[in-house]
Structures are given as C-alpha cells and as structure tokens.
Nucleic acid binder design. Structure first.
Length: 719
DNA sequence: TGAGCGTACGCCCCG
DNA sequence: CGTACGCTCA
C-alpha cells in the first residue's frame, strides 16, 4: 500500500484526515496547500473507498484544476478525466449542458466572452439612442455585469446612469435569452436558479457530491458562495482552503468576508492552520511578511521555513524601461550559463501590455519564452471569426454569430440590411433563417439573393459537418466562404492563416480522442471548452521563460522571479491609490508575487519610461521600500537617477551593445528549411513543415504530433 | 447602402 | 501602438 502521508506534516495530515463535517484550512503561501487537497482526494478514494463521482473539487483557474488532476493521477494512478475537478465556471457549464432546458434555454447554448458582451451592450445603447461617448459601452458593460452578483449595488448609482443601466441590463438579458447565449456570470446565476427551483435536481446533486472541496475560498464572490451552499448536502462534508492575504479578485466581486460568513453558516467547523512554508528561503519570506504587515485588515500570521536564508533580493533600477528589460534578459542568460533552465524563470507584471517590451528583447536575443494570458490564441480575430462560423452552423438563430459571419468576409451586406432583417424577424417572431425567406417584404431583390446565398452556404456547411473530417471541414469552410481569399489583402494574413491551421489541428486532435461522439455534440463541447479556457494556449510544453501577470501567477512557483515595472502608478496602479481597499489589494498582489519565489527574487523598475506616448518619471514603488534594506542588494544604475536624460543616454547604448554581443556569442540562428529533419531535445526527430520569420511548424512522431515552435529555440538542432 | 481610408482615442486584473 | 469610428466615394 502506498503511504499517502509520508511527505506531510502534522497539520497537513489533520487537514487530510478530518473528512467529515465542515473544515476550514487557512493555508499560507507555499504551505503545501495543493498537496493537502490532492492527498485528501486520494485518501477519500483510496482509503475511504468513496467513488470518484461523489467528490467535487472546485478551483479558480484551469491551471489549478489541471495541476490537481495531474497530481491525483500521480498519487493513486487513476484516470482523472471523468472526475469533477474543475473551475466554478466549467462545473456550471457541465451542469447546465445537461439541465438548462428546465430554464427555457436550449441545450446547444453558447458561451460568450466579455468582448462579445461589450459589443452587445454597445449595440443596445445605440439602438436606444444613447450617446456612446457619454455612456461608454465598456463602463456600462462592467456595471451590468457587476450587478449580476450584487443587485443592491444599483442603489449606489446616480441618475441618469441608473435608468440607462436598468434598461440596458433588461434588454441585454432578453437578448441573451432570445439568442440562446450565456455569459460567464449567467453560468453561475443560472445554475443557482436551476438548483433553487428544481428540488429533485438539487437533491440529486446534494447526494451525488458527498465530499466537496473548494480552493482559494478567499476569492469567492457572493454568487459562488451561494452556489457552494446549495451544493452542500446534509452531512456538510465541505472542505475550504483559503488565505486572506492572497485575495486579489475583488474587482470581480471576490469577498474576503466569505470566510467569516462560512464560519457563521457552518458553526461546527474544524479549523486547521498551515503556516510552514516549503517553497521559499527565509529572506523571501521575511520580505513578504514585511510587505503584508502594512495591511490593516488582516489576522496576523507569520510564515516560516527551514530552507535557510538564501540569497539577497536584488533591486535593479534602469535609466529607461529598455534598460530594465535588457537587464532581465541578460540576467536570465547569465543564470542559464550557471545551470538554471529557462523553465525556472518567471517575469511577473501588473498589466498584460508590459509583455510586449519583453517579447521584443527576448525574441531579439533568442531567449525562449511563453506568454500566458494576453491576446490569447482564442481571442484573435480570425479565430473568433471562425468560431462564429461554427456556432452559426450549429445554431442558425445565433444572431451574434450571424452578424459576425455575414460581414466577414465582406459580401455586400451591411449594418442597415442586417438591421432590417432582424427587425422583420423580431416583429414576426421568426428565426433569422426563416426571415431571410421573407426578406423581400423589406429588402431589395439583389440583397435578398445575397442573403439566400449566404443561408444556403451555411446550411451546406451543416451537411458537410457530418460528411467530412474536421480537417477537410475547416478547409471547406475557409475556401467556400471566401475567408482565406480575404486574407490576401490583409497585412497579417499569413499569421492569421497559420493560426487558423493551428485551430484546425486542435479540432482534429480532439476528433481522434472523442470518436464516439457525434460531430455536432463534439463541436458544441469543443466550443464550450474553448470559451472556458481561453487563457490557455496550446504551447504549454515548450521550455521557456514564463511571462505572466501577477494574477495568473497565483498558485505557481518558480526558482527565479522577476517582478517588473515596480513604480508608483504602474504597480501599485495609479487608480488604486485613491482608495485604501484597492491599495491594500495591490499590496496583496505584491505579496503573491514575492511568495512565488523559491530562490532568487529580482525587483526591477526604471527612472524614465514611455506610457501612452508620454515620457514619465515615476518614483520607486512603495512596496520596494516596505522591505527592510538589509534584505536588498541595490543594483544597476541608480546613481544616474537624478541626472538629465541626455547625459545618461550613453549608458543605455552600452547595455545594448553588450547585450548584442552576448546574444551573438551564445545563440546561433537555426537556418531551417521546409522538408529538413531536425532534432528537438524533448520531442525527438521531426520534419520541418513550414518556416516563417520567427516560428516554424514541425511534425513529430506521436504522441507529440505537429507543433508550432520558435524557430531559433535552443532545443532545436539540425540533423 | 456598403466599403475603404484617415483620424481619434484609449490603454488593469479572470473565467 | 492598435483598434474603432466617421467621413467620403462608388
């Protein structure tokens, strides 16, 4: 028998063994929280003989869910693909996909993202003659969404905005319902509605989920709290893990108070404290403690570790933002020469837009990297266009996709025609495709023919879905719709086409895996998967430096961490400094960043940087100053800080030249050509399929298959 | 009525 | 720096 407990301390064991009744585990950063969660699941299945279908584990990110599945699989060697280990949103989608008809929606509902919501809100505002310069769609959208998890907030809004928001909210919900669409908030609220109004179903889930685990409980919002409450059965076997110091999602409604609320709602709770840190050196922990101590509303808690003091923290201040980036890149190269691998590094920033600067320099120096978040693959225009085709093929009455598809590529049908058609449909309560047959009532003959052609094209695609493989199906759509042709006039057409090819690969791969599903169900499932996981790219496996926001770094750890743009206004963000609440959340974000570090921490910033075209000089972030000086080694070029820009300019050049030299010495370019064979350190021998400026597509034997890689990645060598 | 082109504006964090 | 709107022309 395997010993589940061999690596756990007493408190961790307690958290695993106390399986019955409500349990709260307060888990400091790096205290082995994931181990506790996975061991607990393993223990329930392996020792208590609980069937895996009776366990529900909820996480906040897909990454955390995948990690947990992986570790459960490692521990007890069972197939975790059928287990309910998922994010709140995936869990809800799974429940709704089965039962949403009870609420009047159709089973093939589609999930829309925030960009889509913004577009919808905008069109509603326009239709009701509101000036979108005054009522900015983005702001109205945010309010509309916020109201969905706390309706009382409406009373805090002044007129006339209040009325506008009320009207838009109502029309927006009607619109979603009519088009069989669900936004991220609705995934939660509709599930609640379902469970509240369908008692047999609620009973079913209460009995099914005998053991519930919720990770990152400090980040739950009111709606999520309510949902958990509804799911918990009579035995109240609910296990929550949280750390108020790591609460960083207030902007989407997270309520730290939920931990206290839990204590009131489940008064016989059992409390476990996990304070021993297994991740960081004491220098890192001291710094983290010194920072977080400045927050007012918190229960004091001190982490400790047995990993020694380790190295000092480095603060580098560049003259320009470019210096800062160069420093980070050179440091990475230096440490790689000393034995670190690219996977050991993370560059953490406050705003996604920061990644661009780093990308440029890393690309130039041929340092492999991977970006999380940002304009993720699935949010690219061509991918959204194409998924709109797929959605429309599945649901001909999806107005939102209809609009997107009929105007991409241009086919001589514009906003006014669409408007008339939609009005005709709405006034006579018709489906869009039926309205097209009667379009002659409101539209001219040539436009009617164009609409008919369009409709027939989509219907033809539906037929082809069942007849063709996904590979051929995608090609068929791209060709017949004229989409590929329209890319010829697009400057970025090549890249867009490549992305579409990659999308095709993703579909095909899944076609292999889920052979028993019908094509349509598979497509629905995949589209759902895509919208729920839009932050992930397929390229996870590549060895490279990780670029990500501080938010997405939560739950992860790296040997070497760079926290960058540490300036007043950048981090903490300018807006946050007006309210104590927001400001303290920024500090928690800093705390999260620092505690990701295992060995080396670098804090960097610059004296001068360009933001929005303006040159700005920001002070050092107050978070740097909150760390005791003796923990920090100040590096770089701070002696130039108070001199005029011109005088210091030579220095940037010097750094640049050194950088160039280093990159030339250390990294040869891979001169790849189509048809050649190469060897990749991880994937083995592969065949080069195509090469563009920076990337290449290479076919490897199974299980790796076709990969898109950086052309000059050091892992690739020519045979 | 639709499409192409020049200009203006905005630019945080997640599922 | 990139997207999105508004104007003009076909």
């Amino acid at each position: 028998m395997i010993n589940l407990f061999k690596n756990l301390n007493e408190n961790q064991k307690e958290a695993v063994l106390k399986t019955e009744g409500p349990v709260i585990a307060i888990a400091g950063a790096g205290s082995g929280k994931t181990s506790v969660l996975t061991t607990r699941i393993a223990y329930l299945i392996f020792e208590k003989k609980i069937h895996f279908e009776n366990i529900l584990a909820i996480t906040f990110t897909n990454k955390a869910a995948n990690e947990m599945k992986y570790r459960v699989r490692q521990t007890i060697g069972i197939n975790t693909s059928q287990m309910w280990i998922s994010t709140f949103h995936s869990m809800c989608a799974k429940i709704l996909r089965e039962h949403i008809e009870f609420l009047g929606y159709k089973k093939n509902f589609q999930i829309i993202d925030d960009d889509d919501v913004k577009q919808l809100v905008k069109s509603i505002l326009k239709k009701n003659n509101y000036d979108i310069k005054i009522y900015k769609p983005k702001i109205i959208k945010n309010i509309v969404l916020k109201l969905k998890f706390d309706n009382d907030l409406i009373e805090d809004i002044e007129e006339p905005v209040k009325s506008v928001v009320k009207l838009v909210s109502r029309k927006y919900e009607e619109n979603l319902y009519r088009n069989n669409l669900v936004d991220f908030e609705n995934l939660l609220t509709l599930t609640i509605e379902l469970l509240e109004n369908n008692e047999p179903l609620r009973k079913y889930y209460n009995e099914k989920f005998q053991y519930i685990l919720v990770d990152e409980f400090q980040d739950t919002n009111n709606v999520q709290y309510k949902l958990v409450n509804l799911l918990v059965g009579e035995k109240q076997n609910i296990f929550i893990v949280g750390d108020e110091d790591q609460s960083i999602y207030a902007f989407r409604g997270a309520n730290i108070e939920n931990i206290n609320k839990f204590k009131r709602d489940y008064p016989n709770f059992h409390l476990v404290l996990l304070e021993e840190n297994y991740r960081s050196t004491n220098t890192i922990l001291k710094a983290a403690n010194q920072i977080i101590e400045n927050n007012t509303k918190r229960v004091p808690k001190k982490l400790f570790s047995n990993l020694g003091n380790g190295k000092q923290i480095t603060h580098f201040k560049g003259v320009t933002a470019r210096d800062e980036v160069e420093f980070v890149a050179l440091k990475v190269l230096e440490l790689v020469r000393k034995g670190y691998t690219y996977n050991d590094f993370a560059i953490l920033y406050r705003a996604n837009s920061t990644s661009r600067m780093f990308e440029e320099v890393f690309m130039q120096k041929r340092i492999p990297y991977r970006i999380y978040g940002n304009t993720s693959f699935f949010k690219r225009r061509e991918i959204k266009d194409f998924t709109a085709y797929l959605r429309l093929i599945i649901n001909n009455n999806d107005a939102y996709s209809f609009m997107r598809v009929i105007t991409n590529p241009k086919r001589g049908i514009g906003a006014i025609t669409i408007d008339k058609l939609f009005n005709l449909a709405a006034n006579n309560d018709l489906d869009i495709f039926v309205a097209i047959d009667r379009a002659n009532e409101v539209l001219g003959k040539s436009v009617c023919n164009k609409l008919l052609d369009f409709k027939n094209m989509i219907l033809d695609f539906r037929v082809k879905l069942d007849e063709l493989s996904f590979n051929d199906f995608v090609d068929y759509i791209l060709d017949k719709s004229g989409y590929v042709k329209s890319l010829e006039n697009d400057e970025k057409g090549d890249v867009r086409y490549e992305n579409l090819l990659e999308f095709k690969t993703i579909l095909s791969e899944n076609e292999q895996i889920y052979k028993d599903l019908s094509k349509e169900s598979l497509l629905i499932y995949l589209l759902e998967d895509i919208s729920l996981k839009s932050e992930e790219s397929k390229k996870d496996i590549i060895d490279g430096v990780t670029f990500m926001t501080l938010h997405s770094a939560k739950g992860l750890e790296f040997k070497v961490v760079f926290i960058v743009t540490l300036e007043m206004g950048m981090f903490p963000l300018g807006r946050s400094m007006q309210s104590r609440k927001d400001f303290e959340e920024e500090r928690r974000l800093m705390y999260v960043g620092v505690t990701r570090t295992k060995e080396l921490l670098f804090l960097t910033n610059a004296n001068v940087r360009q933001t929005f075209g303006e040159i700005s000089r920001n002070k050092d972030s107050c978070f740097i100053n909150e760390i005791n000086k003796e923990l920090i080694d100040v590096r770089g070029y701070s002696e130039y800080v108070n001199k005029p820009y011109r005088e210091t300019n030579f220095f940037s050049k010097k750094v640049l030249n050194v950088a160039k030299l280093e990159s030339l010495n250390n990294y040869k370019k891979n001169d790849l050509n189509k048809g050649e064979r190469i060897t990749h350190t991880k994937f083995g021998v592969g065949l080069v399929i195509s090469v563009t400026g920076t990337h290449c597509i290479i076919a490897f034997p199974q299980p790796y298959g076709i990969k898109k890689l950086l052309k000059d990645h050091p892992a690739i060598s020519k045979n």
